[in-house]
């Protein structure tokens, strides 16, 4: 089992990208921190040969959903949308706002496949349903993003 520091180095940036996509840049730090602390706790009992990245993404996603639920419960109306998120490779687009406007399943599939780079089969394992449904949701999501951004 590799030292957890190596897990943080190899997968931390990727998981942070997933967190940003799921909950937006402001809450992403909290979600990432909670996810990696949970992962550190459970790490010694992770079976050998596990897909560590998929495991981390699952934990982060669960934490992200918790955060979104908590936010919905608070339901504090805000006058302005948060500052535009900075995504290095798409600096001109208000991507987070557009992502946030997608239906949850499309948002999750776009985030896991296009931002986090997981294959559709793994995305399906995370969000439920078949790989084909995940592929379709990601494609529909991207089409909707294209309509709203371009």
């Amino acid at each position: 089992m590799v030292p957890f520091e190596q897990v943080v180095r190899e997968h931390g940036p990727h998981v942070l990208r997933v967190c940003r996509a799921v909950v937006g840049p402001d809450a992403a730090d909290d979600v990432w921190s909670e996810a990696f602390l949970s992962a550190l706790r459970a790490y010694p009992s992770l079976p050998e040969g596990s897909d560590v990245r998929a495991w981390l993404v699952t934990i982060a996603r669960r934490r992200g959903v918790d955060a979104l639920r908590a936010r919905a419960r608070r339901a504090v109306p805000v006058a302005d949308l948060p500052e535009r998120g900075v995504l290095d490779d798409l600096p001109e687009l208000d991507l987070y706002a557009a992502l946030a406007a997608l239906p949850p399943k499309q948002r999750a599939c776009v985030a896991h496949h296009h931002l986090a780079g997981l294959p559709h089969a793994e995305v399906a394992a995370l969000v439920g349903g078949s790989p084909e449904a995940a592929r379709r949701a990601a494609a529909d999501g991207v089409a909707a993003l294209r309509r709203s951004l371009l």
Binding site: M1, V2, P3, F4, E5, V8, L40, Y43, P44
Partner: peptide, 10 residues
């Protein structure tokens, strides 16, 4: 160290 003590190494 990870193998003999604990993989919770930071």
């Amino acid at each position: 160290l990870a193998a003999r003590l604990s993989p919770r190494v930071l």
